[in-house]
Amino acid sequence: MSGFAAYLVFFLIVALTYSIVTMGLNLQWGYTGLFNAGVVGFFAIGAYGTAVLVGPDRAQLIGGFALPFPVAVVGGMALAALAALVVGLATLKLREEYLAIATFGIAISIQLVALNFEALTGGVNGLVGLPRPLFTAFGSPGAYNLFYLAVVASVALLVYVALEVAVRSPWGRVLKAVREDETAARSLGKNPAAIRLQVFVLGCTLMGLAGGLYVGFIGYVSPLDFLPILTFQIWAMLIVGGSGNNLGAIVGAVGVWALWTMSGLGVSRLLPVAYQSQGGAIQVIIIGLLIVLTLLFRPRGLIGEAEAVSRHAR
């Protein structure tokens, strides 16, 4: 495999992993209007859950169950769902910006727990030497990455199809009703509180799933992986891609992640060697500028929400 293709495979694995997170956030924000600013916290729980379940036994750690990878990922998702249930019960009474602040704080707390609960998470050193599923079955890292891309792409596709079916179902129409006017939804006999909780848990479970896939690919997890910047990146992906549209979430994830990483490649190629120390700053400016320009020219995102109008109203 030539260099660029090998890199592209690697890039798509990470980008599609983020697209699963973005679809989870899209369900919460795009369809139901829940302002979850703690995305990274649930991603972290899925990642650490998977890491503890899949990791090898170590004397100084509580975890190390050495379970098969798929079981560990499901375990990580279950933990993320459980955490979302607890957080949701406590905070979903809050509206918009209040919910945002509460979830943001929770994500930071989760990261601090990861940093300090050394017996479980390895503290600042993280969990090292996690097995990458079926790695030895493939001769070269290139072939393995292709395999892993197939896995992540299938999972992302599955999530996409499932979400499309769900949001087109009667249950999915209630989500938009809750988003647009909760009182009206309640007057029609729907239970917005239950819907909000269901959506919150489901979305966070998807974030946990992505966390597990990330750990399987990288083979390592540390608190540094879960800084608040990641929440911001996921939000940028959703807004740029088009909130309220699952395809938009995927396009946004791939597009924004490409911008985030390949701008660095471009800068390092085009900038004279003497100015390379300044390259990082230039890259950050380009990222910000392109996101702002996209939003100025495509305020609803690259692929916006499809209009939902009753066929009787036409």
């Binding site: 990470v14 990288i218 540094l224 992986d225 910047i229 990483t261 660095g264 390259g279 950050v284």
Partner: peptide
């Protein structure tokens, strides 16, 4: 020289 922005995901990429 490449920048990792202090983030593992950017550094790995």
């Amino acid at each position: 020289l490449r920048d990792d922005q202090g983030s593992p995901n950017v550094g790995v990429d």
